[in-house]
Design a protein around this nucleic acid. Structure first.
Ligand code: MN
Ligand code: MN
Ligand code: MN
Ligand code: MN
Lengths: 257, 257
DNA sequence: CCCCATTTTTAGATCAGTCTAATAAATTAC
DNA sequence: GTAATTTATTAGACTGATCTAAAAATGGGG
C-alpha cells in the first residue's frame, strides 16, 4: 500500500539493454546468470558481474553473487517499457517506412533509446494502437500490461494444422528465409511430419505449394496455435465467461503492472 | 584528381555534434574558436581543446592552437550529412508525426545520431524530397549540395514588405511565441518601423491584425526576402538565364561537394 | 567426501568524454 | 610598450563501460 515512489529514474542506453536482456531471460523461465546475460549482450562475463552489482545498487534488480539477477518491480517496469518501445518502433518501421520484417530489429535496437515518449505515443496512434509487432510479438500497452502468450513452440508440436503466432528470432537471414518460403505470422500451415532423432520438420504453408523442411533448431523460434479442433474447454464454475477477442488461441489475459 | 579515399569513417555522436557546431560557426562567417565551440556545446573550454586536437588527428578539421578550427573536406562532408539528417528528421516529425516547429529540434538532435541511412532515405521519399525544414532552413541533398541562401537578416532590413524565409533559433519558447503572433516561414508581413538606438521593430503580419513588436535581438534570427519591387537585375553578358524556380528570392545556386 | 571442470568474481587496465584549477599565450587598454 | 584582461592550454582527476588474466566459488562424478 506504500505509495510507490514513482521516481522516473533516467538510465543509460546500456542499462536499458541490460534490463531488456534480463527480462527476456526471465520470460524464457531461465535463471539470469552472469554468463547468460553476457552471452545475450556479447560482452565479457566480468563486465556483467560489475554491471549487475551496479543495477542492484540502483534498485533495478536483485543480485545474488554466484547465482544471478532478478528484476525488481522498478527494473521490470523499465524493461517492459523498452519492450514496448522496441516493438512499436518495429511496427512503425515496417508499416510506415516499408522496412522488411528482417530489417526492423536492428534499427529499433538503436531507436528505442533515442526517441521521446511523445514520439512513441504519436506512432502508437498513427498505427492505431497495434497489439503485435511485425514478428507477431505482443506489444505491451502504455501502462505496462502485457498479453499472456498462449502459443506453442513448433519444436514441440505434433503433426496437424496450425497458424503462426510469432517468430522469436531476430537474425535477418533466417527471417528473410522464412519470408521467402511463406512462413509469417497469421499464416496457416500444416505440420506434416517430424523426422525422429532431432530430425527436420516437414510443413506445408497455406498457399499449398512446395513443402518446407525446417531444422528442429529453427523450429524452436516459431510459435504456433493449433487450428480448428478446439475442445470447448469446460469453464470451471465461477470463472466469468470472457467476452471479446476469444478467437482461436488469442489470449486475453494480461499481467504486469 | 587524386581519387579521394571514400573511407566512411565512423564517429561517435559526440564527434558528430562537434562537427555540426564548427560548420554552423563557419556558416556564420565566424572563427571556430575554442570558447565559441564550447559555448555552443555547453561544455568546458578545456574539453574542446582536447577534442579539437583529436578531430585534427582524425583528419576532420584543421586546428591551430590559440586560433581555432577549420573543417577539412572530410569533416565538412560529415557535418553537412548531419545537417541533412537533422533537418529531414525535423520535417518528418513535423509533417508525419504532427510535432510543432518548436518541438522538432530537441528530438532531431538525438535521432540524427541514431537513425540509419535507410531511415533517412525512406523519410526523404515519404516527404517527397523536401527542400526546407520546418524553420525554413535548406535541407542539403543526398550528395551534400546545399542551396545558397540569399536572404536578409530582419535586423538589417529597412521598412517595407517581406516574406519570411527562415528562423534560425531553436529555443522552443521563442518559436512558440512567433507562431502565436503569426510569424512563420512563407508568411508575408510589412516592416513598418524600426525604433532607433537598438529599439524594437514594428511589423504587421499578413493577416493584418495587431502589429507585432520585436526586439532587435529576436529579429536577428529571422531571415527574410523583400517582396515585389524586384529590380529585374540586368544579366551580365554570358550569364546564362537561369530557368526553374526563379521565384522571388529563392536561390538556385548550390555549393559544396 | 574430495577432485576437477565450469562458472563467477576480483584485480588491474584502457578508452572516451568530461570537469576544475592552474598556467600560459594573446589581445586590449592605457 | 607594459599591464590588465581575456582566451586558451595544461595538468590532474573522475565516471561509465569495457577488456584480459588470475583467483575463487560452485557443483557433480567418482
Ligand atoms: Mn537497444
Ligand atoms: Mn520484434
Ligand atoms: Mn545531436
Ligand atoms: Mn531546423
Amino acid at each position: 500500500m506504500a505509495a510507490e515512489s514513482q521516481r522516473t529514474t533516467t538510465v543509460s542506453s546500456t542499462v536499458e539493454d541490460y534490463l531488456k536482456v534480463v527480462l527476456k531471460i526471465e520470460d524464457m523461465k531461465q535463471r539470469a546468470s552472469t554468463s547468460r546475460v553476457a552471452r545475450h549482450l556479447d560482452v565479457a562475463d566480468a563486465t556483467v558481474t560489475d554491471m549487475l552489482r551496479k543495477l542492484k545498487k540502483a534498485g533495478l534488480l536483485e543480485y545474488k553473487p554466484y547465482y544471478g539477477a532478478t528484476l525488481t518491480r522498478k527494473g521490470r517496469r523499465m524493461a517492459v517499457r523498452m519492450l514496448r518501445r522496441h516493438r512499436l518502433l518495429e511496427m512503425f518501421l515496417h508499416q510506415v517506412l516499408g522496412y522488411g520484417w528482417e530489417q526492423v530489429h536492428q534499427e529499433a535496437e538503436r531507436l528505442e533509446h533515442a526517441v521521446s515518449d511523445l514520439f512513441i505515443s504519436r506512432i502508437d496512434a498513427l498505427l492505431d494502437y497495434p497489439a503485435q509487432d511485425p514478428h507477431g510479438e505482443a506489444i505491451p500497452d502504455a501502462r505496462g500490461f502485457r498479453q499472456v502468450e498462449d502459443d506453442l513452440c513448433l519444436a514441440e508440436a505434433e503433426p496437424g494444422s496450425y497458424i503462426i503466432r510469432k517468430v522469436t528470432n531476430s537474425e535477418a537471414e533466417f527471417l528473410a528465409y522464412l519470408d521467402k518460403v511463406g512462413l509469417r505470422p497469421a499464416i496457416r500451415f500444416s505440420l506434416q511430419e517430424k523426422a525422429p532423432f532431432q530430425g527436420p520438420l516437414k510443413l506445408l504453408p497455406e498457399g499449398g505449394r512446395e513443402p518446407v523442411y525446417l531444422g528442429l533448431e529453427a523450429s524452436g523460434s516459431i510459435f504456433v496455435v493449433p487450428l480448428k479442433q478446439r475442445p470447448p474447454a469446460p469453464l470451471p464454475e465461477g470463472a466469468a465467461s470472457r467476452q471479446a477477442g476469444d478467437r482461436p488461441g488469442r489470449a486475453t489475459e494480461k499481467e504486469e503492472a
